[in-house]
Design a protein around this nucleic acid. Structure first.
Length: 756
DNA sequence: GGTTAGGCTTAG
């Protein structure tokens, strides 16, 4: 019942020692801004009086598991929240002149929350005042930049030129082995804040170089746009003064001509033989050879020059370019060479890109063309991102919320395609059944065979009923009403009908089975370690069974310091180092559990093949292609209710929706027809697919319905007749068009008991 | 703790 908050000054026992068969560690807490003893015995109330400002530093002693684990979780400057401690006399009070008492954390009631938010004041030096050989902090406008490129050493290098109100132009070289720690610069005119850069004299001029503890934050440079810091670092400090500095730099830069004529050009304005920057969406990519990768992109604008088509083997192509975009001269083929291949390899189709210094090259590609050379492609525009980094040549992914991308998205949305990408639906059917696996138990036949079932249309069409033979003779698109029996259906194992669907890229994937998910969890445990972001860490020494299983690892709960400030910390809990089973157990007690890992010390959700969120018995998945993970400090600003949608939003996850997909073979005496049940599957069965993923009762309902429509062992004559509404449409696959059918606006109704 | 690069077009 006692709580103490303060900043760690010194971890004077940085390696916990094993003392008297128990781990012990000490740390010194300064600027103890609030120590509250909520229910101390009267004899100790005096200590509370003494806890005034002159004694604002106090020693904390940790025992046991906390002592063993804290050294991985606490460092100087961290903020701590400590609960459940006891107060003892400090034997070192004479010597260290700290508080006469110390706080002792031992046993199950003692908890320590660690926040790595540092409280440090920074001063910024104008670029004209830089002297050689010192470490400084600066704020500036970027006038030239190269995306990070591999050096001959161990790091990546970013080369920048920056300037500020002093009008001094300074070169800046950033070395860092982690790409995500490089400045996120999207265009010239962006604002940059550099901490701990070293000045150096080179060729008679001052330049800046990364030094120890280097960090960087960047901002959009447009006057009036929101001041949003761009960084992967979760421990950066950013306040009102920073906003003012950014705005002042923006206003100043707007009146200078620092940035050359707009290098960003849409495809509709590209001139042959020129270099330009392109902002676009990646449709598909394919490796060409070891030094070349093909990117198929579009920006929604129509190029006045015919665009070169580059044909690659379909099995090497990742993503789905559409023929319609090709036909409409919307797809640009970009050949990426040499050093840029490594960067392009990371891109996922659907993501938004900016390509710097792209070369528009008229003329045929050296690659074999799509139409076996029948039509001449000379003069068609191809695009080359040549090797090297001259003129800032390079490419990167842009976050979906950046202003330029919001504009691009609006344009691309006007080209919105059909509700579902049908070719991906057919790919799912060819998936081998072994890879399916959410247990969906079968209801026993004897329970259900005595029920009759009606299948009725719920649409208000007044379309006349036709035979299947007639359906097949007419060309889509069209709606039909038919009276049919079920001949067969797939999948026979109904749990295989459960799918995950992405509204954004329109792809369908299977729900992974527990063995797969378990594997992903244990894989993630390998990366578990201390992580350095703005979260409170609660190291929880949960007993593991058997205890020897993973003795070196602790289960770590992390909570957002921001949510904790709002008293909502328990509503969203990040869990590190847990097995699938432990996660499920903990999820039954909390509303939202996000399993995380910490490769390179940054807390991040698991591989998106695994569920990113557990809510009670329900599991939620994200789209690998469309998610742009972020686990920022400003978590869920303005979120009222934490549900799967707001959690997904806060984490940058594109939430996948559960769906049911089945293929029914229908018959009516005039013929047979395969129809999919997908869009209206939930109303057909009167279950939600999400429930069917987690709830036995919902699973039973699906099984019962199918058992009634197609009783096991029954002859076709015994099966009920169904009144269905069918929608016919065309699907294009590898240039071939064919008719497809979906059951829609139809629901089942279970009748009363009667003897069969 | 030290190294890398230090803008200024590929040539497909």
């Amino acid at each position: 019942t006692s709580i103490s908050i303060g900043t760690v000054h010194d971890t004077n026992c940085s390696h916990p020692s094993c003392w008297w068969r128990e781990y012990v560690a000490g740390l010194k807490l300064i600027s103890c801004n609030s120590i509250h003893f909520l229910s101390l015995p009267p004899s100790e109330v005096d200590s509370q009086q003494n806890m005034s400002l002159e004694h604002s530093s106090i020693n904390i002693i940790l025992f046991g598991v906390l002592a063993k684990d804290y050294s991985e979780s606490v460092s100087q400057g961290d903020m701590l929240l400590v609960t459940g401690f006891s107060v003892g006399n400090s034997p070192t009070a004479q010597k260290d002149k700290l508080h006469a008492c110390n706080l002792q954390l031992a046993g199950d009631d003692a908890w320590m929350y660690v926040s790595t938010l540092k409280v440090v004041k920074y001063t910024y030096v104008p670029l004209s005042d830089l002297k050689p050989g010192v470490v400084v902090n600066v704020y500036a406008v970027v006038t030239f930049f190269k995306q990070p490129f591999r050096t001959k050493g161990t790091d990546y290098c970013s080369t920048l030129k920056i300037t500020d109100q002093s009008n001094q132009k300074v070169g800046c070289t950033i070395f860092c082995d982690k790409l995500e720690e490089h400045p996120k610069i999207f265009k010239m005119g962006d604002i940059i804040r550099l901490h701990r850069v070293k000045t150096q004299l080179f060729n008679g001029a001052i330049s800046l170089l990364t030094s120890h503890g280097f960090s960087v934050v960047t901002f959009d440079g447009m006057v009036g746009s929101p001041v949003v810091p761009r960084t992967s670092s979760e421990s950066f400090k950013f306040g009102e003064e920073d906003c003012q500095v950014v705005e002042a730099l923006r206003t100043w830069a707007a009146n200078q001509s620092l940035v050359p004529a707009q290098p960003c050009v849409p495809l509709s304005a590209v001139q042959p033989k020129t270099y330009f920057d392109l902002t676009c969406q990646l449709l598909a990519k394919a490796p060409v050879d070891s030094s070349c990768t093909l990117l198929k992109v579009w920006d929604g604008s129509k190029c006045p020059h015919p665009l070169l088509d580059v044909f690659v083997e379909p099995n090497t192509l990742e993503g789905c370019p559409t023929l319609s975009k090709d036909m409409a001269n919307l797809t640009a083929n970009v050949l990426v060479y040499d050093n840029h291949v490594e960067v392009a390899r990371q891109f996922k189709p659907g993501s938004y890109l900016r390509i710097y210094n792209l070369h528009a090259v008229p003329g045929a590609s050296r690659l074999p063309s799509n139409d076996s050379g029948q039509s001449d492609q000379t003069g068609h525009l191809g695009f080359h991102l040549h090797g090297g980094t001259s003129y800032g040549r390079g490419l990167r992914v842009l976050p979906e919320d950046s202003p330029d991308i919001l504009d691009l998205k609006k344009i691309l949305e006007t080209f919105s395609e059909s509700d579902i990408n049908d070719s991906s639906m057919f790919e799912v059917w060819s998936t081998p059944p072994e890879s399916f696996g959410v247990p969906l138990q079968s209801a026993s036949y004897s329970d259900t065979c005595c029920m009759c079932i009606g299948v009725e249309r719920t649409c208000d069409h007044t379309v006349e009923q036709v035979s299947l033979a007639e359906v097949k003779s007419r060309s889509p698109p069209q709606v039909f009403h038919v009276q049919v029996q079920l001949k067969s259906y797939q999948p026979q194992r109904l749990y295989q009908s459960l799918k995950l669907f992405c509204h954004k890229c329109k792809t369908i994937r299977d729900v992974p089975d527990d063995v797969t998910v378990e594997g992903l969890f244990s894989e993630a445990q390998k990366d578990v370690g201390p992580c350095n972001n703005g979260y409170w860490t609660l190291v929880l020494p949960l007993p593991r069974e058997p205890p020897s299983e993973s003795p070196s690892q602790t289960l770590t709960l992390l909570m957002s310091s921001q949510l904790m400030g709002n008293g909502k910390a328990q509503e969203l809990i990040f869990l590190m180092g847990a097995t699938l089973e432990e996660t499920c157990r903990i999820a039954s007690a909390y509303s939202n559990i996000v399993p995380v890992t910490s490769p390179q010390g940054t807390m991040t959700p698991l591989d998106l093949s695994a569920p990113f969120l557990f809510r009670g018995t329900k599991r939620y998945y994200g789209c690998k292609q469309c998610s742009q993970l972020k686990v920022g400090e400003s978590l869920g600003e303005g979120v009222e209710v934490w549900d799967e949608k707001s959690v997904a939003d806060a984490l940058g996850v594109q939430l996948l929706q559960y769906g049911l997909l089945m293929k029914l073979e229908l018959q009516d005496g005039t013929g047979f027809l395969e129809a999919l049940l997908w869009r209206d599957a939930e109303s057909f069965f009167h279950v939600s697919a999400e429930d069917a993923a987690a709830d036995q009762e919902a699973q039973d309902r699906v099984q019962e319905t199918m058992d009634r429509l197609c009783p096991p062992g029954s002859s076709t004559a015994e099966r009920p007749w169904m009144d269905l509404c069918l929608s016919a449409y065309t699907v294009e696959e590898n240039g071939q068009r064919r008719a497809c059918y979906q059951i829609c606006h139809t629901g089942t109704r279970v009748g009363s008991l009667h003897t069969p």
